[in-house]
């Protein structure tokens, strides 16, 4: 019966989730669960997700088990006679109260993580992130560094319809200039947008926040390990929404300092935003007429 099938799926999902949690960072293909977290907070979120998933799987086993039992046991073709009862106050109270208790048990740890998540105090580094159609701009408020981050040329070329080019490993998830941050430091992001609403998202940091024009949204992350972390825009923002990747390079503090020095010490002028913007427009010049701003 379909109920046992659905039940099987949930079991499969549960087992897969547990297996994957134990396996650590697994191959991306056929991934069945959240990615391994690169932040401490992310681990807590991942833990919440697993707790909720397990509660759902257990409830699913109970509900679908009872359903499957009824469908097998009380079949008319097996001569089952229908009972006449039509309510039971006791049962109805039980299955109202028990879910309430479960929900309260779930809400309390969730609220704790939420409060921690919203605490943007005491940041070591502040970066202003501005969304554009369709690229990101990063401004290091404490260092006077500012640059645009566009999709890499290889992805851009391969994403043209019918290009037939080979797709590289980080297709659509690579940029020309990544955001660079030091490891183990609390990085506060101040997000806004130049045009429509975007959302800055790096899955392994468990950070996603909308970049809204006219508003500054704040969020933060503290990466635990050096490496490259990839994400992309998560709020539909027009034709190039799928082509707006994010890469964060997490470096050791001394490497980060060297990177900062390399950008600030020689009098290399900051690229003009206008010029960059024009380049981006020509990149998107294949946009359909209606994709262009109508205002």
């Amino acid at each position: 019966m379909n109920c046992s099938k659905a039940q099987g799926r949930w079991l499969f999902l549960g087992i897969a989730a547990v297996a994957l949690a134990m396996a650590g960072p697994a191959a991306a293909d056929w991934a069945l669960d959240f990615p391994a977290s690169a932040t401490e907070l992310g681990n807590k979120v991942r833990g919440l997700h697993h707790m909720a998933l397990i509660i759902c799987v257990v409830m699913g086993i109970i509900v679908f088990g009872a359903l499957g039992y009824s469908l097998v046991k009380f079949r008319k073709s097996q001569g089952a006679q229908a009972a006449k009862f039509s309510h039971s106050t006791k049962a109805e109270i039980i299955w109202t109260v028990i879910p309430v208790l479960i929900l309260v048990g779930l809400a309390i740890p969730t609220a704790r993580v939420l409060i921690e998540m919203e605490d943007t105090q005491a940041a070591d580094l502040r970066i202003k992130v501005t969304g554009y159609q369709w690229k990101w701009r990063y401004e290091y408020l404490d260092h006077g560094i500012s640059f645009f981050s566009n999709i890499d040329d290889a992805s851009n070329a391969a994403s043209i319809r019918g290009a037939g080019l080979e797709l590289h490993e980080h297709y659509l998830r690579d940029v020309d200039k990544p955001m660079v941050v030091p490891v183990g430091k609390k990085v506060k992001l101040q997000l806004t947008s130049n045009d429509v609403i975007h959302a800055w998202w790096v899955p392994e940091f468990y950070v996603k926040r909308d970049a809204v024009p006219g508003t500054i949204n704040e969020t933060w992350f503290k990466a635990e390990k050096p490496g490259s972390y990839r994400g992309q825009c998560a709020e539909l923002c027009g034709r190039g929404h799928g082509f707006m990747p994010i890469v964060v390079e997490v470096l050791a503090q001394d490497e980060f300092d060297a990177w900062v020095a390399g950008l600030t010490a020689p009098a290399e002028p900051e690229p003009e935003p206008e010029a960059e913007a024009e380049a981006a427009i020509s990149q998107a010049s294949t946009a359909a007429a209606g994709g262009a701003s109508a205002r």
Binding site: V45, V63, K208
Partner: peptide, 29 residues
Amino acid sequence: IAFVVLFTIGGFSGLMLALVPADIEYHDT
């Protein structure tokens, strides 16, 4: 019957989506 089973699965994922910290990761995926 399929409604009861599959709607319940949708309800479970709905409950998971209600949890703000997790929803921030699920949102728009």
